[in-house]
Design a protein around this nucleic acid. Structure first.
Lengths: 188, 188
DNA sequence: GTCTATACCCTGATAGAC
DNA sequence: GTCTATCAGGGTATAGAC
């Protein structure tokens, strides 16, 4: 019954990914959802409200990925590898990272907040993983896990950007393999 | 005399940086340039044409930075450090990397092309630098310079993204320092 | 080269009927 | 809950006068 609501959220998630916040119009959202004007403004107070809900929903969909990194099978380094090498829709870009280019998103706490939480949380998770790996000797010693965690997330985010510029997913892959080669303890 | 033309280009460069392609309107360009409608459409055939010229001009402004990396003072690693640590307007993001989130830019060869050239060229320059550094023993041996070069550019691009999400330039700095720690040969 | 007028569609929203 | 008006403004461009 409030199927319209969930279809609106889903089409907003898709359009934000494809077009960003500025490039996404209420009309386009309604059309893709197969829902009329009145319905949308019944469920949400406007574009911003709908976008905030859609972004929050998207960020919640990242939780399973975190769990796998934290508690998946394998050694810390293996879990990092699995996360970095997992299947991604590289040329479509990151569904949340891309939003942060948008001035309207960055200037609005309700829109930027959830993105910041995912990124900050990811850095925390990665830093923990690196520390674990250092203790077991798998990960290169003498590096700052927090710095390297920020670096790893940056490689993923920047990998999307560089791959899109060249229209070639291989650019992303190269960057990720570069990280893995550097993070492993030398001579293993 | 064709000062209007150069003012148009400059205001387009600024607006593309702040707002992206989709978010930049001809009207806004004209207002910021202090130029009327007719003038803009006299010098350029439309928004796309103007944006293509502005992007090309922006990418040309990257050349001095390359030269410093290639032929600046210091060892290869010192030149890499200088490039990575140089003053940047971090929270404003990368003036060309941000454009690549835009579907209309990616789908248009005239807009994406110059960006691709700068990125591909940068990776080439960085890879050369890394090879030099490996020969002199400054840079960690046993890594693939092309992969690590792609990784370094990704860290810069992703560093902007992550810093904007957190609204804190320190995130960028941490990522960059992470790279430098990993790239240097261990025990030096 | 630059100006003003004009045009048409899109954006983001409100109002009120059903 | 959803539909159909309706609206003021902006986006992007063309036309023709100056």
């Amino acid at each position: 019954m409030d199927d319209a609501r969930s279809r609106l959220l889903e089409s907003t998630q898709e359009l934000l990914w494809e077009r960003g916040y500025t490039g996404t119009s209420p009309r386009a959202i309604q059309e893709r959802a197969g829902v009329g004007q009145g319905s949308m403004y019944h469920h949400f107070s406007g574009k911003r409200d709908l976008a905030a809900a859609a972004i929050r929903q998207t960020t919640e969909e990242f939780l399973p990925g975190w769990r796998a990194v934290l508690a998946g099978p394998g050694t810390p380094l293996e879990r990092l590898e699995a996360w970095l090498r997992r299947e991604r829709d590289i040329l479509r870009g990151c569904r949340i990272g891309r939003l942060v280019q948008d001035k309207e998103v960055v200037d609005d706490e309700a829109l930027r907040g959830p993105i910041d939480e995912v990124f900050s949380g990811t850095i925390g998770v990665l830093a923990g993983l690196l520390r674990e790996g250092q203790e077991s000797g798998e990960v290169r010693a003498g590096i700052d896990p927090d710095q390297v965690a920020a670096m790893i997330l940056s490689v993923v985010q920047g990998g999307y950007v560089v791959a899109r510029a060249h229209q070639d997913p291989e650019r992303f892959t190269a960057a990720v393999e570069g990280v893995l080669a550097l993070v492993a303890a030398p001579g293993r």
